[in-house]
Amino acid sequence: MATPTAPFLEPIERLAESLKEARRHGESEEAARLAARFEQAVKETFRSLTPWQQCQIARHPERPYTLDFIHGMMTEFVELHGDRTFADDPAIVAGFALFDGQPVAVIGHQKGRDTTEKVRRNFGMPRPEGYRKALRVMQMAERFGRPVITLIDTPGAYPGIDAEERGQAEAIARNLREMALLKVPIIAVVTGEGGSGGALALSVADRILMLEHAVYSVISPEGCAAILWKDQSRAEDAAQALRLTAADLKRLGVIDEIVPEPPGGAQLDPSRAAELLSSSLRRHLKELRRVKKPNLLLARRYRKFRTMGEFVQ
């Protein structure tokens, strides 16, 4: 496999590859030995991951993306396109699908796998029309009484001339405001990179979950380093200072739950990652469906964000 990856993951990935190869011929002594070595290597490397290493896993080129999760967790997916105003933005996918046989709206950032696809998806960086499409589908979900599941994986909203001209800031702001009052349950899952406002614009939710190796931050470590250290190469320090790992966010009271990933990270076993996320989603969805009064749902959502932040008075 010739995909460039983080050096610290290479031994694990080589072992995972050999293990897969060995298992192709059924279980054997060799496979068992490799499995043990793999397990040991994962344990050692993952015992003390630095925040910067977490970022590298979150950005791993083989990490499952939104469409992988949708196909891994749901059936009958119907993708909807366009914001009905300007264009369709391939950096966000949105539509309806069956989850556990029940219809839900599902919306997420979409990155591309190969170069052509990466460019077409704009590396998962939405333009205003992406956020407007997302809102259109959320409001459809409200009309048809379907819960909304959003999957967050973006370096951030696209910083470009056209995006500014069409009101990137307005599109994000409007989503924040409208999601606050959407009368159906919303669950947001940070699956990879939770890049600032571009991530938040799909994340005003009743539950915020985060995959074990995902990150969520107000600014990228590179951006933060460039501004505060005046040196982009200090990204590692910035990653540390920003407290952007799932464990950090749990401690800060921003997320509700950390969703475990398969050993070595979701990229090594995307279908298992989807199963693990499914079981977490199932539980939260069940809880939220029990809230019969929309006003109660909204009051709780309001309180959730109302209490975020730390200050003294």
Binding site: R177, A180, L200, I219, R243, L249
Partner: peptide, 17 residues
């Protein structure tokens, strides 16, 4: 404000709500 990390980000949602 970068120095308050993701808590700053959440203020956007809080105010907008």
């Amino acid at each position: 404000r970068m120095q308050e990390g993701v808590l700053s980000l959440m203020q956007m949602a809080k105010i907008s709500s």
